[in-house]
Amino acid sequence: MKTHAEIKKICRILRTSYPDVKTQLIHKTPFELLTATILSAQCTDKQVNSVTPELFKEFPCPKALADADLKKIENIIRSTGFFHNKAKHIKNCARVLVENFNSIVPDNLEELITLPGVGRKTANVVLSAAFGVPAIVVDTHVKRISKRIGLTKHTDPVKIEFDLMRLIPENNWKDFSLHLIYFGREICMARKPGCFCCPVYDLCDYPEKFKKKAEF
């Protein structure tokens, strides 16, 4: 496991490399972000952003989405993949918001995860990006990179989340997740990580990095 000094250095390097980070899901309200985040499962933010303008124009509030025809929702979000399940999730999520929360998106984890289609990752995205609540978002990039760097030995997202919460200062939780996401998209990719140009190469525990360096 990394020392406090090493973790501090990793945070500083990533903050310098990516000084201005924010969620790439386009939204105007917590409801829009919640819906977009559900749609982003196994889909790129870019693809989600291509369908949400039409979706929110047709269904601008939880009540409208809850009352919407399921087939119409499916047709709009089809290109995001798994559209049958996603349509059910966002419609049912909107229904529960209307019935249980007066159409207002909760600002706490405990209530957010009671919504259909909402797990800890989605809840933490909404908490951090919509409400400014410190939260660690463990997506595929964060899961992969935190293990490669040596910040966790786990593969379970919840265990990784709690490992990172223990290691990273709370005031850096939101940005740290985004730093890893940006870093994962640009350099530390799943199949071909750019170890030869990695700013945290000397602090990384990834065993394949030496092979990557030698190949370069």
Rank of each mutant, 00 (worst) to 15 (best):
H84P: 09
H84G: 06
N85D: 14
N85V: 12
N85G: 15
K86D: 05
A87P: 09
K88R: 15
K88S: 15
K88C: 13
H89N: 13
H89S: 12
H89Y: 15
I90G: 02
I90V: 04
I90R: 02
I90S: 01
I90E: 01
K91C: 03
K91V: 01
K91E: 07
K91N: 09
N92S: 15
N92L: 12
N92K: 14
C93S: 11
C93K: 07
A94S: 13
R95I: 10
L97Q: 04
L97A: 01
L97F: 00
E99D: 14
E99R: 11
N100Q: 15
F101M: 02
N102D: 14
N102S: 14
S103W: 11
S103H: 04
I104F: 01
I104E: 14
I104W: 00
V105Q: 02
V105K: 03
V105I: 10
V105P: 02
V105N: 03
P106I: 04
P106D: 08
D107C: 13
D107V: 06
N108S: 08
N108W: 08
N108D: 11
E110S: 01
E111C: 06
L112K: 07
L112N: 05
L112Y: 04
L112G: 02
I113C: 00
I113K: 02
I113G: 05
I113Y: 00
T114A: 09
T114L: 10
L115Q: 02
L115H: 06
L115T: 04
P116D: 13
G117S: 01
G117N: 03
V118C: 01
R120N: 10
R120V: 05
R120D: 07
K121E: 06
K121N: 06
T122M: 07
T122H: 09
A123Q: 06
N124I: 09
V125S: 06
V125W: 03
V125K: 00
V126G: 04
V126H: 06
V126Y: 05
V126N: 05
L127R: 07
L127P: 11
L127E: 09
S128F: 14
S128M: 11
S128C: 06
A129L: 06
A129S: 14
A130I: 08
A130D: 02
A130Q: 03
F131G: 05
F131N: 09
F131Q: 08
F131V: 06
F131L: 10
F131D: 04
G132Y: 03
G132C: 12
G132F: 05
G132H: 07
G132D: 11
V133E: 09
P134R: 05
P134D: 05
P134V: 12
P134N: 05
A135G: 10
A135K: 09
I136E: 02
V137G: 14
V137I: 08
V137D: 10
V137A: 14
V137T: 15
V137W: 01
V138N: 02
V138T: 04
V138E: 01
D139W: 15
D139H: 11
D139K: 05
T140P: 12
H141C: 11
H141D: 12
H141Q: 07
V142Y: 07
V142W: 03
V142S: 10
V142R: 10
